[in-house]
C-alpha cells in the first residue's frame, strides 16, 4: 500500500466518523482492521484501533446483498462481503461490523462504505448522489453530475464565494423542512475536506461546461431523469430500483431544478449569486 492510499484511508475513515456523528444517529459500529502482515507499519496503527459509526434505522434484506456484485456469505444476521482486496462483516443484530483490508485496501474500504452509505440513504428515504454542493443562506444547492462533468471545477470556482459542502458525493435525507444535504467522506479529484453540513436542500442545478453562462429552470420529469442518473445504487433488484425512483421523485419535487451552462472562469459568479438570491 503506498502513502497516497494510506493517506486516503485515514481521510476516508476520519471523514466518515465525523459525518456519522454529524448525522446524530449513532447506532451502528464498524471496526476497521488490518491483516497481521500490515500491522508492523507504524502508520497503520491508528487505523487499526479506529471505530467507525454508521447510522442504521431500518431492517435489512439479505436479497439486497445477493443482488449486488459482491460475494456474500449469509449466516442469519451476519453478512460477510468479500471484495477484491477487503472483507467486510456486518452483524445487523448486534450492530457490529468489521472490515479487514488485505492489500491496496483503499479501493475496497471506499467501495464498502459507498455500498453501505448508498443502501442506508435509500432505506431512510433519501439518496447518495454524485454531486457537488454549496451553501447559500443556510440552504444547500447541489450540482449533480457524473465524473468529468465539472463538479470539482464548480466547487473550486465557488470556494471563495460560498461554503462548499463537497465535490463528489452528497447524502440527501428527509428532514422536518423537506430534505437535508450532507457531505460525505468520499474524495473528489482535488481531495479538499468536505463540510458535513446537514443543510436544507435549496435547489438542484445540473450543469454543463460551456463557453458562456446561462441558467434555465427545467420541468419535473427532466429533473427526475437527470437526478436518477446520478444516484448511486449497487443493487440490481427491483425493490431497490423502486426505492431509487420513489425517493428521487420526492426529492426533485421538493425543490426547483435548473440546468446551468458555465465557463471555466469566475466572471459569471456574481450573476449566478444574484440568481440564487432570487431563487431563495
Amino acid at each position: 500500500m503506498n502513502d497516497v492510499n494510506t493517506r486516503n484511508i485515514s481521510l476516508i475513515i476520519a471523514r466518515w466518523e465525523f459525518l456519522i456523528r454529524a448525522l446524530d444517529d449513532v447506532s451502528y459500529n464498524v471496526v476497521i482492521k488490518l491483516k497481521n502482515h500490515m500491522k508492523s507499519a507504524r502508520k497503520y496503527d491508528d487505523i487499526e484501533k479506529f471505530n467507525l459509526f454508521i447510522s442504521y434505522n431500518n431492517g435489512i434484506s439479505s436479497s439486497f446483498f445477493k443482488a449486488c456484485n459482491y460475494k456474500l456469505s449469509d449466516n442469519g444476521n451476519v453478512h460477510k462481503l468479500e471484495f477484491r482486496d477487503c472483507v467486510g462483516t456486518i452483524d445487523w443484530e448486534s450492530k457490529k461490523s468489521s472490515v479487514e483490508i488485505s492489500n491496496e485496501g483503499v479501493v475496497s474500504i471506499d467501495s464498502f462504505l459507498r455500498y453501505v452509505t448508498s443502501f442506508l440513504s435509500l432505506v431512510q428515504g433519501g439518496a447518495l448522489v454524485h454531486s457537488a454542493g454549496i451553501i447559500k443562506n443556510n440552504r444547500c444547492f447541489i450540482f449533480p453530475g457524473p465524473s468529468m462533468s465539472g463538479k470539482s471545477t464548480i466547487a473550486g470556482l465557488f470556494r471563495q464565494r460560498f461554503t462548499v459542502i463537497g465535490e463528489e458525493l452528497s447524502i440527501i435525507l428527509p428532514s422536518k423542512e423537506g430534505y437535508s444535504v450532507y457531505g460525505t467522506p468520499f474524495l473528489g479529484s482535488s481531495s479538499v475536506l468536505s463540510n458535513y453540513g446537514g443543510y436544507r436542500l435549496g435547489g438542484i442545478i445540473f450543469h454543463e461546461k460551456s463557453d458562456g453562462y446561462n441558467i434555465r429552470k427545467i420541468e419535473e420529469v427532466e429533473a427526475l431523469i437527470r437526478f436518477v442518473e446520478n444516484v448511486t445504487f449497487y443493487s440490481s433488484s427491483k425493490k431497490y430500483a423502486n426505492l431509487v425512483l420513489e425517493n428521487s421523485e420526492k426529492i426533485t419535487r421538493s425543490v426547483k431544478a435548473f440546468v446551468m451552462d458555465f465557463p471555466n472562469n469566475s466572471e459569471w459568479l456574481s450573476e449566478f449569486d444574484k440568481y440564487l438570491d432570487e431563487m431563495i
Partner: peptide
C-alpha cells in the same frame, strides 16, 4: 413510473 402522463423506465441491472 408515470409523471404527468410521461413514462420513464429504469433498468437496475
Amino acid at each position: 413510473r408515470e409523471i404527468n402522463g410521461v413514462y420513464y423506465v429504469l433498468l437496475p441491472r
